[in-house]
Design a protein around this nucleic acid. Structure first.
Lengths: 199, 199
DNA sequence: GTCTATACGCCGATAGAC
DNA sequence: GTCTATCGGCGTATAGAC
């Protein structure tokens, strides 16, 4: 491994460049409006052939992108849960994360909130069954159990709470709300929390 | 015109069949996963050629679909505004409409809430600038003026209020919430209303 | 591992008989 | 207005030289 450091780095870098270009283009134009030629042009690679040395086909690029995003979210959420004992604090941590991502990595949030994973990858599980979202549902269950929130199905908690959060962030992403996500952070958290909090 | 009544009726019916088939397929598989062959098969028409006598191209089918949906929503919203003097009642009427549509015309709601009009029709205005949504924003403005809701930007009202409504309906459409929309109607309205109501 | 060249298929779209 | 037949092109994907 060490003796091929140059090569492996280069390979990993090339893959990253492809993924980064794809992420940007998918977020801007959507998956189906983006051709492999577009992706090749936007990364360092000159022709579509080069892409096939890194990914089996176009779908696998999207699969890898979503896997990376889910993994990263998973790590962050685990971290948040470890550092915060109370479910309400954990939820607050997740919201902080999403607002930060919207300002700092809007393309990632675009894939999560705007694009339809099931239209791109019909075989993939629905978004809400992906690991990070399963964990969020668990936070709602824990919050209900310890009495921080009202007693209602966790899916409905999700609908109300993240309905507000996600719609706000979506409108920031599309420009329907004209300030940075951060400008709406405090007020939106409070509003969302109040929809489920035990009054 | 009158003397060709038979023909025009037939023509209109054929167009409707195409639109209906397209609506169903777009809602199920998405616009890009649906070929004109699929649409021809699903309507009475036997080949894709027939479609071109009714629509200039594939995009125009989507354009017509959205135009129909927007028109119909527009009429309904005008009706609601005429019949209900208070903005809060108007909003309630719109919510009733959306919940009813989710149970009775889920394909229509799928196009509105799940599919990305701007990915399908890049030239089209963003959804929130379409006439029905402009009217809803106006309702929020009127509600703010007469003191029924808190004083905040109408776009933010929209984000909170319809964040809850739309996310709930989206989850009904995808099966993440397992009952009919109607089962969540009352509670969801109340929760959404409370996010913007002057307490 | 990256290029050139090219194959292949699907789909959108057209021409023209009936 | 609907069919048969067919085109053209884009976009995915592969083979093979370097």
């Amino acid at each position: 491994m060490d003796q091929q450091k140059e090569d492996t780095q280069t390979k990993a870098e090339a893959q990253d460049e492809i993924l980064l270009a794809a992420l940007k283009l998918f977020a801007e134009k959507g998956y189906f409006n983006t051709s492999l030629t577009d992706i090749a042009d936007a990364s360092g690679i000159k022709t579509t052939s080069g892409i096939y040395h890194h990914f089996k086909n176009k779908q696998m690029i999207a699969t890898a992108l979503y896997a990376n995003i889910f993994d990263s979210l998973n790590v962050s959420i685990d971290d948040i849960r470890r550092k915060n004992p109370k479910p309400s604090e954990q939820l607050r941590g997740v919201v902080d994360l999403l607002f930060r991502l919207t300002d700092e990595a809007p393309n990632v949030m675009q894939l999560l909130l705007v694009l339809n994973i099931n239209e791109i990858l019909p075989e993939e599980k629905p978004l809400l069954e992906a690991p990070p979202f399963v964990k969020i549902i668990k936070i709602f269950q824990a919050a209900a159990k310890n009495g921080e929130i009202r007693n209602m199905p966790p899916q409905l908690c999700f609908a109300y709470f993240f309905g507000i959060i996600n719609q706000t962030l979506r409108m920031v992403l599309t420009g329907a709300l004209d300030k940075k996500a951060d400008a709406y952070h405090a007020q939106t958290w409070l509003t969302a929390w109040n929809t489920i909090a035990k009054k």
